[in-house]
Computed example of a mutant assay.
Amino acid sequence: MFCFSFWWLLAFSGSTFAYIEIPGAYLAAIRQDRADDQSAGEYNYDEQGDDWTGTCQTGVNQTPIDLIFDDSKIVSIPRLRFYNYDQALQTPLVITNNGHTANMVIPLTRDGQRASINGSLLPGDFEAQSVHFHWGSPNSAGSEHAINFERYDVEMHIVHKNKIYDTIGEATLHPDGLAVLGVMFRAVRRQSSQHYGLNKIFNQLPRIEQYKSNATITGRLTVGQLLGNIVTGEFFTYNGSLTTPDCAEAVTWTVFPDVLNYPRRQIAKLWNLKDSRKNPLINNYRSLQDTNGRVVYYRAI
C-alpha cells in the first residue's frame, strides 16, 4: 500500500534508515496519478489488449499503429519546441511499479516551472506529467508502435497534458487533451551507458520489482536527459489514443524514428518486475491497431 507523508522512509543496509522529505504538491500528484490508474479497473496484457472493452474495442482512432514512412504524408511541419527540458527537476523523484509498468510522475523544475512542449502539429501548450515504459521479454521485442514493420525492445512514453485542462482525467475527455512522446530503445551488448538520466531510473528498477513498490531518485535529473541523444527534429505525428484502458482518443502522438541504443543489462531489469498477480510483468504492449484512414504525418530534417 501507498502510505505517503511529507517524509519518505528509506532503508539502507543493516538497520540504518533515513528520511527524505518529499514536497506535498508532488505527493498529491503521485496520489492523483495512482487514482487515475486505478480508475481504469483491472486489466492485463495476457492477450495484448485484444480482450479490453469499451473504447478500446469500439474506438476508431486507436493506438499503437505501424508507422510506415512510405505511407506517411511528408509535409513542412514546424519543429517541436521544448521548454524547461534542460532544467533540473525537484528531487527526490518517485518511481513506482503500478502493476502495468514502471511509472514516474514528473514534478516541477527546481525553479518552479513545468517542462513543456509546443510546436509541430500540437493543438496548444503541453506540460510534462509522467514517464513510463513498455517492453518485451528476453525473447521478444516490446515497443508498442512499430516503425516500418519493426518493433523495438522498449518504448518510453513521456506524457504531457494540455495546459487548458486541470487534470489528466479531464484532459482525456477532449481530443486535444494529451500529447505523448514515444522513444524507442534498442538493446545493445555494451555494458556501460552515458545516458545519465535513464541510468538513474533504471538503476532503481531492482527496488520496485514487487507490485505497488516504489523507490526514490535523488540528484540532478532533467526531462531532456530522458531523450538521450536521439534526433528530435525528425518524427511521425498523428491523432490517436491512450494505449491502456480506457483507451481515450485524446492523444496527439509524436514518435521519433531515431532509436536510442541502451545496454541490454539495464533493459533486462524491466523483465524482473511483477504484476498485481505476482506474475512476471513482461510483454506489456498493446497489439497494433487499424489506422482507419487516419493521416500520419512525417517531419523530415
Rank of each mutant, 00 (worst) to 15 (best):
L178G: 00
V188H: 11
D290S: 15
G14Q: 11
F133W: 15
M184E: 11
S193N: 05
N229M: 00
Y262N: 05
R299A: 12
I282M: 06
T101N: 06
N61Q: 14
G228E: 01
K200W: 10
L108W: 10
M156W: 07
V183N: 00
V251E: 04
Q225F: 00
T109N: 01
V154D: 07
R207P: 07
T58Q: 11
T96A: 05
T91Q: 11
Y85A: 09
E21D: 08
T232K: 06
I164E: 13
A102R: 07
Q194I: 11
Y165C: 06
S193V: 04
H160F: 15
I106G: 01
L122S: 02
V296S: 04
E47G: 05
T218R: 13
K269C: 00
K73A: 09
E155D: 09
G293R: 07
I30V: 10
S13P: 03
E170N: 14
S39K: 06
S72A: 15
S192V: 13
V105A: 15
P138M: 03
I301Y: 02
I74V: 14
I164A: 04
S15H: 10
V183K: 02
E144N: 14
E47A: 09
V60H: 02
V75F: 03
F2H: 08
C3T: 12
V180I: 15
G197T: 06
T243Y: 03
Y238G: 01
T172Q: 05
H157A: 11
V183S: 01
Q90F: 00
L226D: 02
G14F: 14
Y238K: 03
H100F: 14
D176I: 03
G233I: 08
G240N: 03
Y298L: 10
Y262G: 07
D111M: 08
G41Q: 06
Y45F: 15
P92L: 00
F235E: 04
H100Y: 14
C56P: 00
N98D: 15
I267S: 03
G119D: 04
N61H: 09
Q191W: 09
G240F: 06
S39C: 11
R277C: 14
F126M: 04
L198D: 04
R114L: 10
K73Y: 12
L181F: 14
D246C: 01
I77Y: 01
T101E: 12
W7S: 15
R207C: 09
F236Y: 13
D70M: 14
S130H: 01
Y285P: 07
L121V: 05
M1A: 15
K161A: 05
A268Q: 10
T96Q: 03
V154A: 05
A11H: 11
Q210P: 02
R294Q: 12
V255T: 08
M1Q: 14
P175A: 01
V231H: 09
L67T: 08
L9N: 15
R207T: 03
V159K: 13
